[in-house]
Structure formats: C-alpha cells, structure tokens
Design a protein around this nucleic acid. Structure first.
Lengths: 238, 238
DNA sequence: AAGTGGTCTAGACCACTTG
DNA sequence: AAGTGGTCTAGACCACTTG
C-alpha cells in the first residue's frame, strides 16, 4: 500500500472507485472477493470491508452473502427521488419511450407560464404539447413551456424522440432542482381520446418548475398521467 | 448479553436506541465511552462500534474524536418533505384538524396489509377508517393498519382528535422513514358521499408504509384526498 | 464440500481533546 | 499524562449460495 498519511481504507476505497468508474469491474458483475482484495492491497480483511462498506453506503456496490459483491448498475441520489425526464424514466424500466407532438410553437400569450419562468410580458415562450408513449402505450399528455433561448436549442431536434434534459446537458445547461405539485384531475374528452381511456377517468397531474444551476427557471411543465399506467414513488425521512 | 440468534451488535443497537429515546442519555450529552459499553454489554469493542456507527448513520449519535460520543439533538430536514401526519400538516397551515371514525377494530383478515407490515397470518392488525377534516371541511378518507401491539397504544386515545405520530413518539416509537406511492383514482359513491363531492371525481391516493428506527414496519395507510382541497408538493434534485 | 460475505474477539498503536 | 474515538491486524466461527 502507498506510504502516505491517508488511512489505508480510504486509499483502498479510492482504488475501488477507480476500477468501478473505469468499468474494469462492470455493472452487475462480481468484484474480486475480500480474500483476493486482501492480497491485492496487502491489508487486513477489516480494512477491505471498511472500504467496501462505504461504497455500499454510497450505492456503488451491493453485497450478497454467500455470492460476493457486485457493482451496482445505477446509483440513485440517496433517499431523494431523482430529477429526471419521462424518457429516462421509461428507459430505466426497460421500455422504449417515444412521443407524438401535438403542438410546438413560440407563443406571446401564456402569461401564467411566463411569470413562472420569470420572463417579461414581451418575451416569448416555446410551448410543446406531446403525447408520451412507453412501448407504444400512451401514458401521458404533457405541455412544457421554455424560455425562448432554450427553446431555440430544443427546436433543432426531433421532438418525437428528443430527451430534453439530455439536450440541455449537452449544451451545458444543467438542472439543479425542481419544484413539483402533484394532484389529481378528471380526464377531459380530448385527453381521454389521445390516451385511449374514458372521459372522466382520474389522471395524476404533475406540475414541475425546474431550475438551472444559476437558480433561473428552465422549464414549466404540466403532465397528466393515466393512473392505471403510472404512479409516483417517493421515500420520506423523519 | 441476551442469548438469542440476533446479532450482538443489533441487540446493542436496540439497547442504545432505548436509552436515547427514554432520554436516559440526553441530547447534546456524552454517552458512556466505548470501554464502559464493552463492560456494560460484555462484548468486544468492534461490536460496540458497529452498533454506534449505525446510529451515527441514522443521525441519532455523533462521534467526536478525543471527546466521546454525544446524542444528537433532533434535526429538521431542510428541503426534504418531512414525514408527518395529516393533523400536523393541517395545523401547520393554521387550520383545525379533526376526524370522524368510521371503523376501528382488530382484524384477522387483510392479508395484503399484514404482509406489508411483516406480520404472520395468525396475527391481528388494527384497522382504523376515518374521515379527515380541516376546519370542518372533509378533505380525505383514510384507512390505516397497525400491528396489534401498536394498535393497543392507539386505542387508548380518542381517535377523533388523536395525532397518531405524536402518540407513538410519546411511547418512544419513532418513525425513521416511509415509502409512499401516489396515484389517482375515481371516487366511489360511498367516498363521494362522505367527502361531499360527486361520484367519479378524481381523488389523489397516497399509500404510505412507515418504518421505525429498527426498520420494522409501523403503519400501512391508504388515504384518498379531494383533489380540489389537497395536493402534494415536493422538491427534487438532479 | 468449497467458497462467499457476516459476525465477533483480543490486542495494538495512533490522533485528537482535556486537565 | 490520561482518556477518548480512529485505524489496523490476525484469527475464528457462522450463514448463505453454489456445484
């Protein structure tokens, strides 16, 4: 082991992180056993376990008694529900997302939406209305509003397949947080029509206002989900 | 130490929790040293430390090198939605909560609920059905299920005015976390009746499974809220 | 039966806070 | 100098998974 004044288990931990991040040890695969790691690093089992346990707590590794320790596929943000888009959510479940655009235009009106986005009355917003599918099943209708500058970026892409948050990230517009309001509402005739349900069915309505790293609003989106196809999971702490 | 098949460090952990909850060891004060705890429980230092480290992770204790280990004062959960009951929520808005009990009995059936609570088939659950009011406006119908032991505690109180979580806290049963599922559903005729709305109106349905400090289930509750009177706010991070 | 991680012990030395 | 928690070792046996 290195001869520094850093604790051994921290050095081991850093080595393990490196292997995981460089995918030398692949997701869902076993990492070397504790015995092997002891020899590899020349430290005691306690030290190896201390390092591994920290990575388990961080969600990078998962231990399975009798089998071994595996690299965890995706690391979620602790107890918090992660801020992600519809397409990401669908793909994580192993389904294929796509969209059908009903409307996409820059708009002068929509005063409430402009106010939420912190825009002046004379500025424009991009409004995009889409039906969202998972494996060709209609799940939700969504109306998202964006400041004009961001809207220009989005309109360069195919809105049927675009993952908006990924596009923004590529342009270094990073989401920091979002405020959500969740409610329930009866489906209108039009909504029932596109979602393939009966008018009046209860929909789960999610209204999201997202903020960038500079704390400026980025997106104001209202999504209405079929309650037979979608629910919202969350973990609360004392 | 007890001669059970439970791991020693878990037994120690439960003992420590008890001392903290009963305030034998007071907030911001030192608990006994590792040496003293070793003698007290008759176990090795490793075992003591394992128990303490879990409580540090849970935020109950805080270690200070060279000084000792102190009981942490209760901390608030900043941006996170706090785990709280209906009555607490209503009072925070400056309104007066009360309830009307529709049903309260120990029950042999309810197999799904027993399973969620980690109970055997031959055990009983307390099921409580209530209409929940804020300033005399009916807001929600709620059905909560509790293990029999906890149920005995609750039944000593007036269920129309009781704040369940406060009762549990007084008896040193502290909530650690909860899993919630949020969905939407159409009101049945019976629900519409007691809530003063029309049948078929969209309700917000919240299903909560709460866990105590020992990670054992405490409560399985399904609540259906009027969507014109209640919504759910949450903050997400990327 | 062999191998994995889970639990537990006894002992050592170190880094930090306090009298 | 004495006491605290922090790090680390070597060794043992157990519970679980797999051939």
């Amino acid at each position: 082991m290195k001869s520094t004044n850093t604790a051994l288990y921290l050095q081991v931990k850093d080595h393990l992180i490196e292997k995981i991040q460089q995918q030398v040890w692949r997701p869902n695969h076993l990492i070397p056993t504790e015995q092997e790691l002891m020899k590899l690093f020349g430290v005691s089992r306690t030290t190896i376990r201390q390092a591994i346990n920290m990575l388990v707590a961080d969600g990078l590794l998962e231990k399975r008694q009798g089998k071994g320790t595996v690299v965890k596929a995706q690391q979620l943000v602790g107890s918090l529900r992660r801020l992600k888009g519809f397409a990401e959510e669908v793909m994580e479940k192993g389904q294929v997302p796509h969209s059908k655009v009903l409307r996409a235009e820059f708009c002068d009106s929509l005063y409430l939406e402009k106010k939420k986005l912190g825009l002046d009355e004379n500025e424009k917003v991009l409004v995009i209305e889409r039906i969202r599918f998972a494996d060709d099943v209609p799940i939700a209708v969504e109306r998202s509003c964006w400041p004009e500058s961001i809207g220009q970026l989005l309109m360069k892409h195919n809105l049927d397949t675009a993952k908006f948050y990924s596009i923004l990230e590529e342009d270094n517009i990073l989401l920091k947080r979002a405020e959500e309001k969740i409610s329930a509402i009866n489906a209108t005739m039009a909504e029932a029509d596109v979602l393939g349900i009966r008018a009046g069915e209860a929909l789960l309505e999610m209204t999201r206002l997202s903020f960038g790293l500079n704390d400026k609003p980025i997106e104001y989106t209202k999504t209405r989900y079929r309650s037979d196809q979608y629910h919202y999971d969350i973990e609360l702490r004392r």
